[in-house]
Design a protein around this nucleic acid. Structure first.
Length: 816
RNA sequence: GCCGAGAUGGUGAAAUUGGUAAACACGCUAGCUUCAGGAGCUAGUGGAUUUUUUGUCCUUGAGGGUUCAACUCCCUCUCUCGGCACCA
């Protein structure tokens, strides 16, 4: 009887005792760092989605181990953060208590799934010995000028009562609680990720990552190459700078638009005649939340600054100036030159407010040429109505106009990024206090490194109050401190940092969790990093995966590592869905992994998750499907059980074979190996199933020694997928050591190739016959045999063969 | 709106370089079996067509194209799922 509970518990214990999954970090000769995204421990326990990722990742790690690598596969908990905190608030329990409980539960679950985890070096972001170094990281950032304070409109979640980073706002809503995010003008701590925009973009060209994730990052960074051009106001000395990617269209700039937040709008020297009207528009526009701006169907609004005009530096004509919220302050210079004929938004605006539209680009294709002025044309073409730029192609015109602007000192080429600095302040309790002190005399002073950690003080009522200050502000003993510089009265920063700061460097910390004297161990980093394989969710494209790259680049510049990119390879998996939809509590289609592990065992759940479909695409979970996998496991189990009984009854002490010439085995080994290498887990399992099916049909004609050898090989092949079973099978065969100390089976190339193959005979591309031939049959022979085939002859009749195609080892196609 | 990924049997899905579409499963059908167990075994299972079926024709969202040959490449369209969202 296959008793998965007993077997799995036995091997889990033994792995733990033998520390089978804890490589020696200093002595390992072939390090392989196999990383998976550490989960944030929710109250609900490990989600099937986490398990999906872990299972594939673990299978790959175990495969690498069997191929002779020293595999480090660490695990931990991303436990700080709003998610955990909100859950604690919801159930009315203190977050510290909740965390202690979820930690226990998560680690138990993680043990149950049988991962190759090194339990001696877990990382919990909310423990002092970790967040101390998160604070240290902040101080390094501060020293480099990469952490700074800035007052700016930030994303405020009214429900979580904290600010959020741009990356945490999804469609104008809070990533955590889906509340509408508001814009608030606040002073916050930022990390200067924009300093690394170019490097973050450039390295995307060579890192081996899923291409959609790379593209997502590229778009988020959003590099635009163009020019900045200065426009002078008529009648005053004021001027305004604009950014444009199409300086070549400047002759078509028929008006200028300024963002509502632009400081020029408060400039009295402009003498705006309708200042009141303008002010009320500005007030309304600024009040709008992001989501309102999106939901209003992008209907253009705006107000003309009456009596104000700027001079187009090329046409020398004056053009009107408008304020409109389709221009945003935090990109470029908060002002644009509007070229309605060649920009979608300007076109729409000009149509609505009846502003002049002037064509300056002639499209090359006729279809678009006909539509110019009826529709906007934003493409490239030939410049017209533009003085000295006439007749030039867009690219040439752009170069020429930039040279002109430079000579006249009214503009220059310029690059802009959509990426903005990372706002890391959070007005919450459950995070690492930002290690800064504000002194009346000295200003902001960093906490000296020797004083770290700034401990998160106990606080019973940790509910955020929405005052714009974190709950820590309520604790006098915490707030009131002496200035480390002058000893005078000072106050601590009471905000904590974004949990994404915690996770931006955890993979470094895994390497030296036992060392509490320093954050990072350079030698080990050199030996083990960058991470060889990282498997995780694509939802972190512009969050964790971007932040980690940034932090690694900073650590590189500080000399802690000699690489700029933390993850050599990142592989994004798809989602597990159920009943055709993403799992969610409200839909009631959440799969609880515990229940299935209990019923069928971790091995069956692992196998099923990997068998579902291609890991890149995700797959659909079916309760009936896992039962089928359980059946396969039991069938395989029976083979070993039978073998054990036989060998006991026969009691034959015959010597073991070292190799075997059964092509079926060699083909299976090749298939499984190739499939695992290209991360095609589902087909690898299919191949193992085929092998088991074959074994059933062949077993009666096999010698005991042969069986023993075949089953040994099968035990190893199956062990990355179903590690407990692998071990159990291995021990049934009489082995004392762990199967994971074995070598991955090798195949004999000569046995892969069949001595006889079926060559397909097509007539006009349609299958008409099959002939049995040797794989290296010559073209001539193949044609002769093909024509001799009865069926083929029937089809050919009296037709003349016009053409013959021969594909070696595959087919013959006769064209008639 | 823009960008990306996808659409293959009743279902989840395979098909690595353009070369036998549907591997491997689930489900279903029939039969066998009876340690009644979330059982096991055997056979069948894309559709149409009663032409002895070891046959023929059709079939990878729709339509067109390239090719001896297209799930795969190109064009047009439809739908689904993700990402971005006035970024000049």
């Amino acid at each position: 009887m296959y008793d998965h509970k007993k077997i799995e518990a036995k091997w889990r214990e033994r792995w733990q005792e033998e520390k089978l999954h804890a490589p020696n970090l200093d002595k390992a000769s072939r390090p392989f760092y196999n990383l998976m995204m550490f989960p944030y421990p929710s109250g609900e326990g490990l989600h099937i989605g986490n398990m999906y990722a872990f299972t594939h990742s673990d299978c790959y790690g175990r495969f690498k181990r069997l191929n002779g690598y020293d595999v480090l596969e660490p695990i931990g908990l991303d436990g700080f953060g709003i998610h955990s905190e909100n859950y604690a608030l919801k159930i009315g329990e203190h977050i510290k208590k909740v965390s202690a409980r979820t930690e226990k539960n998560f680690y138990k679950q993680l043990q149950m799934i049988g991962g190759h985890f090194d339990w001696d070096r877990t990382v919990e972001t909310y423990k002092e010995d970790y967040y101390r170094w998160t604070q240290w990281l902040f101080l390094q950032m501060y020293k480099q000028g990469l952490a700074y304070r800035k007052k700016s409109p930030v994303n405020w979640c009214p429900s979580c009562k904290t600010v959020l980073s741009d990356e945490q706002v999804i469609n104008g809503e809070c990533e955590r609680c889906d509340s509408k995010v508001e814009k608030k003008e606040m002073e916050q701590w930022f990390f200067k990720i924009t300093d690394y925009a170019e490097k973050l973009l450039k390295n995307l060209e060579w890192i081996d990552w899923s291409s959609d994730v790379k593209l997502g990052q590229k778009n988020w960074i959003g590099k635009s190459v163009g020019a900045e051009i200065t426009f002078h106001f008529k009648g005053t000395k004021q001027k305004v700078k604009v950014f444009t990617t199409r300086p070549d269209t400047i002759f078509g700039a028929t008006y200028l638009v300024i963002a509502p937040e632009h400081p020029l709008l408060k400039d009295e020297t402009l003498r705006i005649e309708n200042q009141k009207e303008v002010d009320s528009y500005i007030k309304k526009a600024i009040k709008k939340s992001e989501i309102d701006r999106i939901k209003e169907d992008k209907e253009k609004t705006g107000v003309e600054l009456k009596g104000v005009r700027v001079i187009n530096p090329l046409t020398k004509k004056t053009i009107p100036v408008w304020v409109a919220d389709y221009v945003v302050m935090n990109y470029g210079w908060g002002a644009i030159m509007a070229v309605p004929a060649h920009d979608e938004r300007d076109f729409e605006f000009a149509k609505k407010f009846e502003l002049p539209i002037k064509k300056v680009i002639q499209p090359i294709d006729e279809k678009s040429a006909k539509l110019v002025l009826k529709k906007c044309f934003a493409g490239k073409g030939i410049t017209v109505n533009s003085g000295f730029l006439n007749g030039l192609k867009t690219k040439v015109a752009q170069r020429k106009i930039i040279d002109y602007l430079k000579n006249d000192k009214i503009g220059k080429s310029c690059v802009n990024y959509k990426l903005r600095d990372w706002c890391i302040s959070r007005q919450r309790y459950w995070g690492p206090p930002i290690p800064m002190i504000k002194c009346k005399k000295c200003g902001w002073v960093p906490v000296p490194e020797k004083d770290l950690p700034v401990k998160l003080p106990p606080l019973n009522d940790f509910q955020p109050d929405g005052s714009g200050k974190g709950p820590l502000n309520k604790i006098k003993d915490f707030v009131e401190v002496k200035c480390p510089q002058c000893g005078g009265q000072a106050k601590r920063e009471t905000d904590v940092s974004d949990p994404f700061v915690d996770s931006s460097w955890y993979f470094f910390r895994y390497l030296s969790t036992e060392d509490n004297k320093q954050a990072l161990n350079k030698e080990r980093i050199k030996k083990w990093m960058p991470v060889d394989m990282y498997i995780g969710g694509k939802e972190h494209t512009v969050l964790h995966l971007l932040y980690s790259r940034f932090v690694t680049m900073v650590l590189h510049d500080l000399g802690y590592c000699d690489f700029e990119e933390p993850f050599k390879r990142f592989f994004g998996h798809g989602l597990v869905i159920k009943d055709g939809a993403k799992m969610s509590k409200s839909k009631g289609n959440v799969v609880n992994p515990d229940e299935f592990i209990k019923r069928f065992g971790a091995d069956s759940v692992r196998l099923y998750l990997m068998f579902l479909s291609d890991v890149r695409q995700g797959g659909e979970w079916k309760d009936a499907g896992i039962a089928g996998m359980f059946r396969f496991v039991k069938r395989t189990w029976k083979i070993y059980e039978e073998f054990q009984v036989e060998s006991i009854t026969k009691n034959s002490g015959s010597s073991k074979l070292k190799s075997i010439k059964i092509p079926r085995l060699h083909k299976t080994i090749k298939k499984v190996t190739d499939d695992l290498e290209r991360l095609s887990f589902n087909t690898a399992i299919a191949r193992i199933m085929e092998f088991v099916n074959w074994y059933y049909t062949a077993k009666n004609s096999l010698e005991e020694q042969e069986k023993h050898f075949l089953l040994s090989q099968l035990a190893i092949l199956i062990s990355p997928f179903a590690p407990h079973l692998g071990e159990e099978f291995w021990s049934i065969l009489g082995n004392k050591n762990s199967v994971f100390k074995e070598k991955w089976p090798a195949y004999n190339k000569d046995l892969i190739e069949d001595k006889q193959i079926e060559l397909v005979v097509q007539i006009n591309g349609k299958l008409r016959g099959k002939i049995k031939v040797s794989p290296d049959i010559s073209q001539q022979e193949a044609f002769v045999l093909a024509v001799e085939d009865k069926k083929v002859r029937n089809f050919l009749g009296k037709h003349k063969i016009k053409r013959k195609i021969f594909v070696k080892g595959r087919l013959v196609n006769l064209v008639i």
